[in-house]
Write a protein that binds this DNA or RNA. Sequence first.
DNA 1: CGATGAAACCGAAACGTTTCGGTAAGCGGA
DNA 2: TCCGCTTACCGAAACGTTTCGGTTTCATCG
Lengths: 341, 341
Amino acid sequence: MPKRISIVDVAREAGVAISSVSAALNGGPGVSEATRARVRETADRMGWVPSVRGRSLSSKRTRALGLVVQRQPGVLEADPFFAGFIGGVESVLESAGYALLLQIGRSAAAGADRLRRLALSGAVDGVFLTDVSVEDPRYALLDHLQLPAVAVNAPGSVWVSSVTQDHRSGLSALMEHLIALGHRDIAHVAGTPGLVHSEERESVWRCVLESHGLPLGPVITGDFTTEAGARAADALLGGSRVPTAVVCANDLMAIGFLSRAKALGVGVPDDVSVTGFDGVLLGAHVHPPLTTVMTLPGALGTRAAEVLLASVDGGPRVDETIAPAVVVDRASVAPPRVRMA
Amino acid sequence: MPKRISIVDVAREAGVAISSVSAALNGGPGVSEATRARVRETADRMGWVPSVRGRSLSSKRTRALGLVVQRQPGVLEADPFFAGFIGGVESVLESAGYALLLQIGRSAAAGADRLRRLALSGAVDGVFLTDVSVEDPRYALLDHLQLPAVAVNAPGSVWVSSVTQDHRSGLSALMEHLIALGHRDIAHVAGTPGLVHSEERESVWRCVLESHGLPLGPVITGDFTTEAGARAADALLGGSRVPTAVVCANDLMAIGFLSRAKALGVGVPDDVSVTGFDGVLLGAHVHPPLTTVMTLPGALGTRAAEVLLASVDGGPRVDETIAPAVVVDRASVAPPRVRMA
DNA sequence: CGATGAAACCGAAACGTTTCGGTAAGCGGA
DNA sequence: TCCGCTTACCGAAACGTTTCGGTTTCATCG
């Protein structure tokens, strides 16, 4: 009901042209300090807030960044990655006066389509690329559109920047730790196939085993949910040849594995060692407390936002790396029990 | 680099006026089926996506809804409420073609200010109100602005609608269950003071005890974090008079309590029963599995989005309720141990 | 004293869409 | 034949800002 006040109202009230109001409030040149102060005072007094609609149409800047999450709602709910990431992003956007436009596509195809519309409609000045898959089609789209973008935990492209937290060193340190304890039979519970971070973690597991001349234990393909972890426990613990250690691609699957192992009467870490990946808060509160690799989604979000903002302002593409993920040794890992042959 | 194509390009290509393109694509009247089809075909062929900037300026509709979260980043990361809620919201917005504008204010004051700017700048067509505190100043702002809004798990106002999942029945059922088992000494670990859901849960705890003529056990004030739960365990288990049951205002605090209790050598549920509230996925995987009240953030988000969308379309304010939260009885509750007087 | 130039300020176009008043064509009825 | 009504379509204003070219003012310098 209270009619919006616009820049023309402020201009009339202050007795200047609207272009002067604009210049005064945006710090532009061609305005004396006296008028600048007077305009500012008038605008404040009238409670004027520039219309983001008019502004974005005119200035080609929306002052919003886009994030299209393509995940099952269930994973989203349990996995704290996004909450942490978004928290980090927001801490930067807040001071920059930017907003975050969030969309959730339940499949990769739906996500790509939403991203396409988001970009083409000019709703955002740049986008974050998460859950990147190998041969992700979104790179081609963004390269073509030349829309500022930053890939998170995935390689960049000709046009797209990237911000990454190194997974490899932390995970290989964890593997080395297991091997140093005497484990020779190490299984892997993998994440959703096709995602770069799934593939990467599996590749680390494989490389470390090969570098020690150890046999590749069984691989169970999961989807990052606790249910997948439980199914993996069924598959791995019920067989004739039970591994002495199980390296899970994320904490949620490790926690699901832990629960099912307990239900099956298999002791952790006495009968089998289990490790996770992510470092979720609750991993410290399960039984036994989960040995894992601690990642920093918040720091990742912060840096990604800074990079993307710089890119929006015309900066060059960059490939950044934040502090690597480190092993957090809790109590779900122990030397293997000596067994009968 | 590939210059944006606009509605005038489509109009020229199809040989009609831009107003006809607009009418044709938006299903407006005054367009023959023949031209409508031709325009649609042309637009598709050219890959035209309407500019949300031009559209929102002209139509007074942004096709975006706002959510200002005012929480500490830490809580946000661990508490799956928002991920679930946002998932539910998005499932509705996706089909409606709306986007979600997310902002995080680290304090209530910062949140209120961000909401104010969000509303005044015309960036959104409506907003969700979460983490509402008693006497929340945002109601007055929205009432004054007449901006469509829906309060989540909090009462509405003259102008603001509300969508609520009943907490009281589930929590009082949980209390009755404890009392039926023989508990007489029931403590409460409360949430952040001032928030309506904190106050509400404490009030249920108080009412049920009073209705049974039982003494009010000690109340420890927390802040919904696991650390607060651990501190509560220190306070409650170290004292001379240890309660037989502890009702926590959320799962995170209950889980923190559980961990610390184990560290202190206090058995759950043998020495003390513990309950949570929320029904987070991981509550089933801690030891012992947590008895709690299961809420449905996703369903809440879905309904809230529907209500808000209806409100944006001029619908009347409503107060909705979704299916109540129900008790999930796992293993952290047992009859009290018989003690020496 | 007049020319020069910078600083301050103004006016209008441009951004891309929706919306509304207006016009031409077609058609049935008197 | 002419009037009036409907249908299809067009042109232009409006939304609120930024931006850019232009004009005035005034001090400076030759």
